[in-house]
């Protein structure tokens, strides 16, 4: 009896957008072009073409169409493709927060970790990046080489979630 479902999402383009100088100027250019501000750490935002998730002080994870971004960055930052290095895993159902406590150290059960939030942590010795899509769905970006081990760990833990 488990109330969490673990599914691997299909591979999709993913980029790391890094700003190394004039962050406020770049932020202004971005907001004007994209219609939403660069999200704060631990937050995500987007429009129908683009979704940005922030885990680091100077880097944003970007899903979707990045064609406009190099122009916006000019000499203040760079875009690097990193999609191949992660597998996106969807954890859905009421129990995803409890599941993330298994072998973890991050407070995924906290009410502050709500829809739109993001957090990177370590679970069962693997560096995992989490993104809360809504109350019943959380996406986990797992390093490709560890994904098979991580998914196996989650599936085993899901069996005894409610004990």
């Amino acid at each position: 009896m488990t109330d969490v479902t673990i599914t691997v999402l299909p591979a999709a383009p993913l980029h790391a957008l890094e700003i190394w100088s004039n962050p406020t100027a770049v932020a202004a250019r971005f907001k004007k072009a994209a219609g939403f501000a660069l999200p704060a750490i631990g937050r995500s935002d987007g429009n129908d073409a683009l979704r940005l998730i922030r885990y680091e002080p100077t880097v944003w994870l970007v899903e979707g169409d990045v064609s406009a971004l190099p122009g916006l960055l000019a000499d203040d930052g760079a875009l690097t493709a990193i999609g191949g290095s992660v597998v996106r895993v969807q954890l859905s159902g009421k129990g995803w927060r409890t599941l993330l406590m298994e072998g973890g150290v991050f407070d995924a059960e906290s009410p502050n970790f709500a829809s739109g939030c993001s957090a990177a942590t370590i679970i069962d010795h693997v560096n995992v990046r989490l993104h809360v899509v809504d109350d019943d769905i959380c996406h986990a970006y797992v390093p490709l080489s560890y994904s098979e081990a991580m998914i196996h760990f989650w599936k085993t833990a899901a069996l005894s979630l409610t004990l």
């Binding site: 790391a16 890094e18 190394w20 100088s21 000499d75 930052g77 760079a78 690097t80 290095s85 390093p143």
Partner: peptide, 12 residues
């Protein structure tokens, strides 16, 4: 420094 050094070990 104006540089971005990204780990792409598993990307490629």
């Amino acid at each position: 420094l104006r540089v971005s050094a990204v780990n792409v070990q598993e990307h490629y």
